[in-house]
């Protein structure tokens, strides 16, 4: 009976492998998480470069004046940098989409079983927050009598709306890390486009650097798990 019960055990094993594959193939097998880590690293570097350029241009002396300069400086970033930060969610998503095409071409796409109530609630909260942010930014000039350039106004609405749409479109293919990368880039991108931040953008460097390390580490771990499951699946097939 030991050998006759093997098919049933094989079925359990195959189901377990499929569930694990569905989980670790998210974020394009972790490569999109790695890509997110690299993007945060690049944005950190760019933030330091831009902030230092402001600092040198304005000829601020060191010590307290320098600290004050970085904390309260509110000269808007040049449009090109605002645009880059504003487009950063889209840049990440395009990378994710391209790598997804590759990873799906390797072993195919498996969508994990229907999400539980917690997951559905989490999605509703994330989308609700982006919706409220978009609405607030649309009403902000009216509520507070703030004058905004037309592109900053519309850009400030477009970035969170686009980020929300991308999240909804690929929610099931993104892991917790992928969703948070998209969310953080969307929120900071919105701030840059709508509010315009100058030298104080250097304050973003520490959290961006931490996120970068976290995403690089988790992306590598997910990719390693993915490779492990694929090898097991190949062995299963060969057996």
């Amino acid at each position: 009976m030991e050998t006759l019960s093997k098919p049933v055990r094989d079925m359990d094993h195959l189901q377990d492998l499929t569930r694990r594959y569905a989980e670790c193939s998210k974020d394009a097998a972790g490569i999109a998480t790695l890509w997110g880590g690299m993007l945060f690293l690049f944005l950190s570097g760019m933030a330091v470069g831009v902030a230092m350029a402001f600092y040198e241009r304005d000829g601020v002396s060191g010590g307290i004046p320098a600290l004050r300069y970085f904390l309260v400086n509110d000269h808007a970033l040049p449009h090109v940098f605002q645009l880059f930060f504003g487009l950063s969610p889209l840049v990440w998503f395009l990378g994710f989409w391209l790598v997804s095409l590759w990873s799906r071409g390797q072993f195919g796409r498996v969508v994990a079983q229907a999400e539980g109530q917690d997951e559905a609630r989490k999605r509703a909260v994330v989308l609700g927050l982006l919706g409220v942010l978009t609405l607030y930014l649309a009403l902000r000039p009216v509520l507070w009598g703030i004058h905004l350039e037309r592109w900053a106004f519309w850009g400030g609405i477009a970035v969170p709306a686009l980020g929300g749409l991308l999240l909804v479109a690929r929610w099931r293919d993104l892991s917790q890390e992928g969703r948070s990368i998209l969310m953080v880039l969307t929120v900071t991108g919105t701030l840059f486009v709508h509010a315009g931040i100058g030298a104080s953008l250097i304050l973003l460097v520490p959290p961006y650097a931490v996120l970068s390390v976290v995403y690089l580490f988790r992306g590598l771990r997910r990719f390693r798990n993915y490779r492990g499951v694929v090898r097991e699946l190949e062995r299963f097939h060969a057996a």
């Binding site: 195959l14 377990d16 499929t18 569905a22 072993f107 195919g108 796409r109 498996v110 969508v111 097939h237």
Partner: peptide, 24 residues
């Protein structure tokens, strides 16, 4: 067919390529 159903029961949606690789 048993393998196909077994795999499908473990996920919400499975692409053709995955089934092809698993079943051979």
């Amino acid at each position: 067919r048993l393998t196909i159903l077994t795999v499908l029961a473990a996920a919400e949606e499975v692409e053709f390529l995955y089934l092809q690789r698993v079943t051979g």
